[in-house]
Design a protein around this nucleic acid. Structure first.
Lengths: 153, 153
DNA sequence: TATTGTTATACTCTATAACTATA
DNA sequence: TATAGTTATAGAGTATAACAATA
């Protein structure tokens, strides 16, 4: 018997739980998971192309288009053709977009903190530090394009 | 700007990476992700019903049937009608089943340890302790039946 | 009538391919 | 000809519904 369960066996269900926590909060702000992901993705570097944005948030470029349409319609993002290359679209957050994003994220973090409060201060610190390190390391590595859940034999 | 990224934003991609690490290892042992999950699920309490097993590993009862068929054909599990209630099937690992499971798991843990070796001893300890605590807490809570990735608005 | 296991069907999500427009 | 964006289609993966056997 191993000294610990597989990491994936612990982390994947935990990820699902965290998403289950996020979903109702996002819905209450009129956001889908992908819409929220887009708002987060635009925060870091204000303008980009849709493909780059899609890749940075682990999505297919075709997949986020309805989301972008919706966010634009609701005034949360702007999407203007790049004068220098009119094929590309310059994306950025509007103040309203930033506001929903921040409000939703604050609510999410609050719920997450409740979850983390079950841990000792030391463990919580180690957990968050480790998570951020592993996460950074990921973003440096090849951005694995959403592998299939499993393959049939 | 928040003091940390959303937990889900860090954990979900990490989970995907861990699954991507597992997949080729499992394939090399002729196991799918669900097959491995079944072998793991049978370890803890040797005999059960298929529904209970499915629920305990976060699967739908209809989803694991082809997997059970395959594992049985290959002699990794036994599936016999319960004499006390012939509707139910008693499931258990065979020695061969336990062997593939242990071999695969050892290989997986080895790769995971490489990943964890990027962390300081303190962070690694905190990370694993926190993970196990949160994981235990999960198994006590309602076993969220695989929520949809996101809902369309 | 309710439950276990099973099969068949429908639905959701995702990726691939094909099209338009710019370059 | 190549690339950004878009649309339409096809493919996985999943859950729901319907069925047979047993209780």
């Amino acid at each position: 018997m191993p000294d610990r369960p597989d990491l994936a066996a612990m982390i994947v269900p935990l990820g699902r739980t965290l998403m289950a926590i996020e979903l109702p909060i996002l819905e209450s702000h009129g956001l889908t998971m992908w819409a929220y992901g887009v708002l987060l993705g635009l925060e870091e570097s204000p303008v980009r192309t849709q493909s780059a944005l899609a890749q940075s948030i682990g999505a297919d470029k075709t997949r986020i288009i309805p989301t972008l349409d919706d966010l634009q319609d609701r005034g949360f993002i702007t999407r203007t053709p790049d004068p220098a290359d009119r094929r590309a679209r310059l994306l950025s957050l509007t103040p309203e977009g930033r506001k929903v994003r921040d409000t939703a994220q604050a609510a999410i973090h609050q719920r997450e903190d409740e979850l983390l409060s079950a841990l000792s201060a030391d463990d919580r610190r180690g957990f968050l530090r480790a998570l951020q390190q592993l996460s950074d390391r990921e973003n440096a590595a090849p951005p694995a394009p959403v592998p299939p859940r499993h393959s049939r034999g």
